[in-house]
C-alpha cells in the first residue's frame, strides 16, 4: 500500500514493524540524504537500525542478518555503486537472505544505464533524482515501505 504524499501511512508485518537498516556506502561520508530518509522511514512506522556513513558491504550484511531486517536502504555518492550494491546482494544471498530487499540512491552519481543494471541484479529500487521530483520524499518512502514489508 502506498499513500499520497503528506498522508500518514503506517506499515507493519506479521512479525511486527518493518525493520530497515540505513547506511551510507563504504568510504563515503555523504550522510545528509540518508539522515533525512531514515527519519521519514521511522515516522512511517519502521524500526530503523541506523549505521551511519562509511559502511562496508560486510558490515551492512552482518547487521541485516543479526537484526533480521526486511530491507536495507543505502546511499552511495562516491562511485563504485554498481560493485557495492551487487556485492551486498551476493553476500545476502550467500547467507540465505534472498528475502532482504535492497534500496538505494545516489543522486545523479548513479546513471540511468547503471540504474538498469542494478535493477537487473536484484536491487529492488534505485531512486533517481527524477523519482524524487515526481514521487516526492514521502512518496519514495511509502514506495520503499510497501515493497519492504
Amino acid at each position: 500500500m502506498a499513500g499520497e504524499a503528506g498522508e500518514e501511512v503506517v506499515f507493519s508485518t506479521s512479525a511486527g514493524p518493518v525493520r530497515v537498516i540505513t547506511a551510507a556506502s563504504l568510504f563515503d561520508g555523504h550522510d545528509a540524504a540518508i539522515n533525512v530518509m531514515r527519519r521519514l522511514i521511522q515516522s512511517s512506522g519502521a524500526e530503523v537500525i541506523h549505521l551511519g556513513h562509511d559502511q562496508s558491504a560486510k558490515a551492512v550484511v552482518d547487521c541485516a542478518i543479526q537484526e533480521d531486517a526486511h530491507a536495507v536502504a543505502l546511499t552511495s555518492y562516491q562511485g563504485g555503486h554498481v560493485e557495492y550494491f551487487t556485492y551486498i546482494r551476493e553476500l545476502l544471498d550467500e547467507a540465505g537472505c534472498e528475502h532482504v530487499r535492497i534500496f538505494g540512491g545516489g543522486g545523479g552519481t548513479i546513471t540511468p544505464p547503471e540504474i538498469r543494471t542494478l535493477h537487473q541484479s536484484g536491487i529492488s529500487k534505485i531512486y533517481s533524482p527524477d523519482d524524487g521530483r515526481t514521487m516526492g520524499l514521502m512518496g519514495m518512502i511509502h514506495d520503499l515501505m510497501a515493497q519492504g514489508q
Binding site: E8, S12, Q42, G45, E47, V48, I49, G52, D62, Q66
Partner: peptide, 24 residues
C-alpha cells in the same frame, strides 16, 4: 507511529569482530 530509531550500532566499532553479535 510504532516506529523506532535503533541507533546504538552506529557507535560500535567493535562490531567488525564477529565474536560479537548484536541485536537491537
Amino acid at each position: 507511529t510504532g516506529g523506532a530509531l535503533l541507533g546504538d550500532r552506529i557507535r560500535m566499532n567493535s562490531l567488525s569482530n564477529n565474536d560479537l553479535y548484536m541485536r537491537s
